[in-house]
């Protein structure tokens, strides 16, 4: 059996700042198989974006990968030389960024930015690269791509820019796409269209997709598996329906409860009390225990990641087992 597209094992990405070591990603493991979608969910600052950058080798100083392995089709990306990593980036592994207004260079035309991506990985003529760029734009639903190729980013709306960014990510038909909240900055209808495109792509070409988001409703419709991150650690992971229907970790339950549309009218909105802890001095033990309704003395010990049911992992010593049993 061929290895899964991506296997992340005990990844640790730390930032060595003057104020101390920030463990932005601390012992994160997950697997994404061919054609599957993993939803990486968490609040701002939980380390999900840094996880994405770690996979692409784009963590900047003072941050660096302090441990763990990132196996891409069986090849470890941690410690891979820059040149080898660059050959994979944009080619076999692509990334889509959160803010489409910022990801395209404002002073370069769309065709320049697309053609350079094609030519960075394949020796093709400018004309052929241009052809590929045009097809990619058409694929993501940009009308009259020939004309649009000659435009500058500021002549596009946010949704259109994100489509261009996605088209750039698709140029080399990558095996893995890391999408960092690509629909957060877009309105709902555009978001729906882009989600549908993403789903179609994975099903058709076998591309594995990591969809980073804080929006559980997006994950519910799109992902096969879900990994919930809190303070740099994955606190729960499993198949998406099971996790959303019967969460094990109190944090996951709190996240689900915070989705406003699940609330009944007239009832006050539910929320998780407190704030995410400062990453600079995380308390020992379970990072969530200060906000957890079930916290007890034992939570001061770091809880291990444990399998509570087949395929259901959670980092909690007293998970919501009753939900599981039901």
């Amino acid at each position: 059996m061929s290895p899964p597209t991506l296997e992340v094992r005990n990844l640790r990405t730390h930032f060595f700042t003057r104020a101390g070591v920030v463990k932005a990603v601390d012992d994160v493991s997950f697997t994404v198989a061919r054609g599957k979608v993993l939803g990486l969910v968490g609040e701002s600052g939980s380390g999900k974006t840094v996880t994405g950058f770690s996979i692409l080798g784009l963590v900047d100083a003072p941050g660096r990968i302090a441990g763990g392995r990132i196996l891409f089709q069986g090849q470890d990306l941690v410690g891979l030389p820059d040149a080898a990593m660059r050959r994979l980036r944009g080619n076999r592994i692509a990334m889509i960024f959160q803010d489409p207004m910022m990801t395209l260079n404002p002073v370069l035309r769309i065709d320049t930015q697309m053609i350079e991506t094609v030519q960075a990985h394949q020796k093709v003529s400018r004309e052929e690269a241009r052809q590929r760029a045009r097809d990619a734009l058409g694929q993501v639903g940009i009308p009259s791509p020939d004309e649009r190729l000659r435009a500058y980013p500021h002549q596009f709306s946010g949704g259109m820019r994100q489509r261009v960014a996605i088209a750039i990510a698709l140029l080399h038909k990558p095996d893995l796409i890391v999408a960092d909240e690509p629909t957060t900055a877009l309105d709902v209808t555009i978001q729906g269209q882009i989600l549908a495109e993403a789903q179609k792509l994975c099903a058709q070409s076998g591309t594995a997709l990591i969809w980073i988001t804080h929006d559980l409703s997006v994950v519910a419709g799109l992902a096969d598996d879900i990994a919930v991150m809190y303070a740099g650690k994955v606190v729960e992971q499993g198949p998406v329906e099971q996790v959303l229907d019967a969460p094990l970790h109190p944090y996951t339950l709190g996240l689900i409860g915070s989705v406003p549309s699940r609330n009944r009218r007239g009832e006050p909105l539910r929320q998780i009390p407190g704030m995410t802890p400062s990453m600079l001095n995380l308390p020992a033990g379970c990072a969530f225990r200060a906000r957890c309704p079930r916290a007890e003395a034992r939570c001061a010990e770091p809880p291990p990641m444990a399998e509570h049911a087949p395929g259901r992992l959670a980092r909690c010593i007293h998970p919501h087992g009753e939900a599981l049993a039901a």
Binding site: R86, L88, R89, A94, N105, T117, A120, H121
Partner: peptide, 9 residues
């Protein structure tokens, strides 16, 4: 960063 993610030199 996006340009780096595209694999440019």
């Amino acid at each position: 960063k996006f340009a780096r993610a595209k694999g440019l030199s």
